[in-house]
Amino acid sequence: MDVFMKGLSKAKEGVVAAAEKTKQGVAEAAGKTKEGVLYVGSKTKEGVVHGVATVAEKTKEQVTNVGGAVVTGVTAVAQKTVEGAGSIAAATGFVKKDQLGKNEEGAPQEGILEDMPVDPDNEAYEMPSEEGYQDYEPEA
């Protein structure tokens, strides 16, 4: 019985440690998101679009440190934060509304985080759909 109880105690310690790591990862992701939003706020009209992409990228980098179902929630929060940063930029006159959601080359930025393969159960990952990809044929 002692062996059984000791095993359960060790398992509990492992769960607590994993929860603490997840909590730490979420806190880091939130900190990076805040950094990115402050970065966007300090940019001029020309830099705002690039700044919004930076927020998304920093958040995406930190999301990889967070495991399990938390990833889905962090990704949703990050996307809403990026959308909010863009709205703030438009409201303050840093950028025109028609410039939001495009990178410096004018290509749409939507789907940055949505296409990231995420499995809350950590069982399997699927690649994003290939609808947006084109076949590449090298020139002879």
Rank of each mutant, 00 (worst) to 15 (best):
S129F: 04
A85D: 02
A27L: 13
S87H: 13
Y133P: 12
Y39G: 02
A69H: 10
T72H: 15
A124C: 14
K60W: 12
K6F: 02
P120V: 05
E61L: 08
Q99P: 02
V63S: 02
Y136H: 08
A107P: 06
K32G: 01
V74E: 01
L8N: 00
G51P: 01
E114C: 15
G67I: 13
P138N: 04
V26W: 15
A124T: 03
K12I: 03
V55F: 14
K6L: 07
V71K: 06
A76W: 14
E46H: 05
T44P: 01
K58Y: 13
P120Y: 08
K58A: 13
A27D: 01
M1F: 01
V55G: 01
F4M: 03
G41P: 01
T59E: 00
Q134E: 05
H50Q: 13
L113R: 10
G36N: 15
E28Q: 06
G47Q: 14
K96Y: 14
E28Y: 08
E28R: 07
L113A: 12
K97R: 13
T22M: 08
V70D: 01
E104C: 02
A124Q: 05
K97L: 07
T59G: 04
F4G: 00
G84D: 03
G25D: 03
Y39A: 02
H50T: 13
T75L: 14
K21S: 07
Q79E: 04
T75V: 14
T81N: 02
V15T: 01
G86D: 04
K96M: 14
D115N: 07
Q109F: 10
E139M: 06
T92H: 03
K6H: 02
A30W: 08
P128H: 04
G36E: 03
V118P: 13
T72G: 11
E104G: 08
E57C: 04
G67E: 02
V52A: 08
T44I: 15
S42M: 11
T92Q: 03
Q62V: 03
A107H: 08
G31E: 04
V26I: 15
V37N: 00
S42Y: 10
A78S: 03
T44A: 07
E130N: 11
V82D: 02
G25L: 15
L38V: 08
G14V: 14
A140W: 11
E57Q: 06
G93Y: 02
E130K: 11
A85T: 05
A27E: 02
K32V: 08
Y125V: 13
K12G: 02
S42D: 03
N65T: 08
K60D: 00
E105C: 03
K32Q: 03
A91K: 04
V16I: 13
V3E: 00
T44D: 00
V26T: 01
Y136S: 14
T64P: 03
T22I: 11
L8A: 01
Q109R: 11
V3M: 06
G36T: 15
V3C: 03
G67Q: 08
V63Q: 01
A17I: 05
T64Q: 09
E137P: 04
P128R: 10
G106Y: 11
G86W: 15
Y133R: 02
F4D: 01
K10F: 04
N65Y: 12
D115F: 10
T64C: 11
K23C: 13
P117T: 08
G84A: 15
K32A: 13
I88L: 09
E126W: 03
T64K: 04
A107R: 09
K102C: 05
T22D: 00
V40F: 14
K96W: 15
Q24T: 15
Q134P: 12
D119K: 02
G132L: 11
G73K: 12
E61C: 06
P108H: 08
K58W: 11
V40W: 03
G93D: 05
T44F: 13
E35D: 09
V3P: 00
M116C: 08
Q109K: 14
T81G: 05
G36W: 14
V71D: 01
E20Q: 08
E46F: 08
T44C: 13
T64V: 13
T54I: 14
D98I: 03
Q109A: 02
K10R: 13
G68S: 04
G25R: 12
I88C: 05
Q109P: 09
E105K: 02
K12S: 04
V15N: 00
D2G: 00
E20D: 06
K80W: 13
V77S: 02
A90T: 10
H50N: 07
K34S: 01
G86R: 07
A56N: 02
T22L: 06
V3Y: 04
E35N: 13
V77E: 02
N65L: 08
Q109D: 12
E126G: 12
G67L: 14
V118S: 10
N65Q: 08
V71T: 04
V40K: 01
A17P: 00
P138A: 10
F94N: 03
S87A: 12
A69W: 12
G73S: 14
K58I: 14
K10T: 05
P128M: 12
A78K: 04
K21I: 11
K97H: 09
D119S: 04
G132H: 06
G41E: 01
V55A: 05
E13T: 07
V71N: 02
A27W: 10
D135G: 05
G7T: 09
I88Y: 02
G93V: 06
F94W: 15
K97I: 12
T92W: 15
Q99F: 10
A91C: 08
G51N: 06
G14W: 06
A29K: 05
E114V: 12
P108D: 10
E137V: 05
T44V: 09
G67P: 02
V118G: 10
G73E: 04
Y136F: 10
D2K: 02
E114S: 11
M116I: 08
Q79P: 02
Y125G: 08
D121W: 05
D98T: 14
G73Y: 08
V77D: 01
E35P: 01
K32N: 02
K60L: 12
P117S: 04
E114Y: 11
G31I: 04
A27V: 07
K43R: 10
I112D: 06
K97M: 08
E57W: 06
M5A: 02
T92C: 14
G36A: 09
A30I: 15
E105N: 13
L100M: 07
D2P: 01
K23R: 07
D115T: 10
I112Q: 05
